[in-house]
Each structure stands twice: as structure tokens, then as C-alpha cells.
Design a protein around this nucleic acid. Structure first.
Lengths: 146, 146
DNA sequence: CTCCCTGCAAACTGTTTGCAAGTAC
DNA sequence: GTACTTGCAAACAGTTTGCAGGGAG
């Protein structure tokens, strides 16, 4: 799997630029999402947050997740255990593979997808502003294990 | 937009083969989904159903939608007004475009997507069993209208 | 000092479940 | 007759909201 190259500092900088007040909780939640090996639901992130900060409120995590999603720092996973899990965004990489066995998410190179979308725009006449490609299956590691 | 070529009879036949008992309500709901020009939520389908059959229960529609989805006859739309809208499945066509203006869904030809997925499988080593590509934007018609 | 953030609890929405009655086969 | 389906109501889960207090700039 692709190693997670996300820098928490970059996220904090983005938050700052957006006029969102940066607090200790925010830093903690960013850390949690940026460094998790697996997609996390809001509930799971809340559980992890309370391990180091027991009085963290549920709503705080929901509000934070919403902000991170709106800023494009995390992406919602659809169709894997509902639609309430999130993974950090890797800019420029839009193809997301989710292993149905171990649950890990892996970004794949997507240049061909850009071409495909461009082509679809041309032939259909639609103006495409956003794309979402999710792939499901068994990852290379889990195939060996089985 | 691609004309909807779904035959209610085909769906009924599939239901029958699956050992699901075919009732009048099922026929009605199949008709509603197969012939709607727009993606429908369960709630919307329920509203339509009650126009011709006021005593239809909400749970019945939910249960029916679940069956249709499991059989692959309808597909859930993700990221458009939540994740609770459905469109009829067109076999072999996996690329789905949703207009953010008028809300209509349009299937696009997808041969290049198959190649792209094949290629991703080869380079990543993952075994891909399911793919989900959704495109968002403004459809050709709405571009003209504006 | 001001405004945004936080925690708590209550409210809310969409969805699921249990059960008795109805209906297809 | 048997088993699946239906409608109703209650239960449920995840998420959102209102508000009083706290913290950042």
C-alpha cells in the first residue's frame, strides 16, 4: 500500500487560511485521520480522541469532520460499511481502492482517468466538474495471506 | 440523455427467479423506479406509490428497495443529496453522470473504464471485483438553458 | 473584548424491526 | 396450508442543533 505522505502541518496551515480557529482538539483530530492506516468513521475517530482526551464531545468530532471534508482534506468513502468512513485526501490522486478483506484504502495513479473523463465530456457534451471513482476488491497483501 | 430502455417485465422475471414473491406492490414500485426520469429516494418512491395506493407502508418500500438493490436492478447514487437516491441499473454501463442542476442521471459508455481498471489491477496487484464511477457536473441541456 | 469553539443533552431524520394480519403459490 | 409479504407502530442509530460556558486572537 502507498505510504501515507500526509503532513499534519499542511492541514493546519489550510485550516488557518480558511479562517478556522485552530485548537488542540483540531490538531489531535487531524493527527488521527492523517495517520490512521484504515478508513475511520466519525464514531471511531471519537473513540480514538477520547483515549487521550476523555472529555471530547461527540458533536465536536462531527463538526470537525464536516470542516475537514468541506476543505477537501478528507474524503468520504462510499459503499464500504455504509457511507460514513473517511480517508485523508491525496491531492491529484482520485482513484481509490478499498480492500474488502482488510479494509485498507489505497490510492492508485489516475492519469488515464483524467483522459477518460475528458473523453466523456467531449462525447456527451456534459460539463464534468467532479469525479468519484471507487474500486473494491482484495488487495495484493490479502491475496497472499489467503 | 439516454432513453430509459428498462423493461419492467425483465425485472419481474428476475424477481421471480430469485424466489421473491411477486405482488402488486412490487410491480408498482418497479414501475416507479424503472420509469422515473430522476433519481428517487425511498421516501420519494413512497410518496409516488401512495398516490395510487394510499395505504402503502413505508417499511414495505424500504424492504423492496433493499431487494431491488441486492438484485442489482437499481443502483444507489452516492454524494448527490446524501446517499439515498436510486437509479435503475443499465447492464454493462457503469459510468454514471449526475447533473447538479436538473438532477437527472445519465449513463455513459464505459469501455475505456474497463481498460483502466484492468490496467490498475495489473500495476497494483489488487484484485478488483467492483467499481463505482460517478461524475458530477452540468449536463448538456442545462448548459444551453443557462 | 469579541467571536468562535466545545461539551452536553435534547431533538431529529432516516432506517430497521417485531408482530399480527393478509396474500401468493 | 405454508411461507413470504404487508402495514403499523415502536425502536434504533447516526447525526444535527441549541445553549451556556470556555478559550483563542
Amino acid at each position: 500500500m502507498r505510504s501515507n505522505a500526509i503532513k499534519s502541518e499542511d492541514w493546519l496551515a489550510e485550516l488557518d487560511e480558511s479562517g478556522i480557529r485552530v485548537t488542540a482538539i483540531q490538531e489531535m483530530l487531524i493527527d488521527i485521520f492523517a495517520h490512521s492506516e484504515y478508513p475511520l468513521s466519525t464514531e471511531q475517530a471519537w473513540d480514538i480522541a477520547r483515549q487521550s482526551r476523555p472529555k471530547t464531545g461527540r458533536a465536536t468530532v462531527y463538526r470537525m469532520v464536516e470542516k475537514l471534508e468541506n476543505l477537501g482534506l478528507i474524503r468520504r468513502l462510499h459503499g464500504y460499511q455504509g457511507c460514513s468512513h473517511f480517508v485523508p485526501t491525496l491531492p491529484g490522486l482520485m482513484m481509490l481502492f478499498i480492500c474488502l478483506d482488510c479494509g485498507r484504502a489505497d490510492y492508485l495513479e489516475s492519469q488515464p482517468l483524467d483522459h477518460l473523463i475528458q473523453q466523456s465530456e467531449d462525447t456527451s457534451g456534459h460539463h464534468i466538474t467532479d469525479s468519484r471513482l471507487q474500486l473494491y476488491g482484495i488487495c495484493a497483501t490479502c491475496q497472499q495471506g489467503a
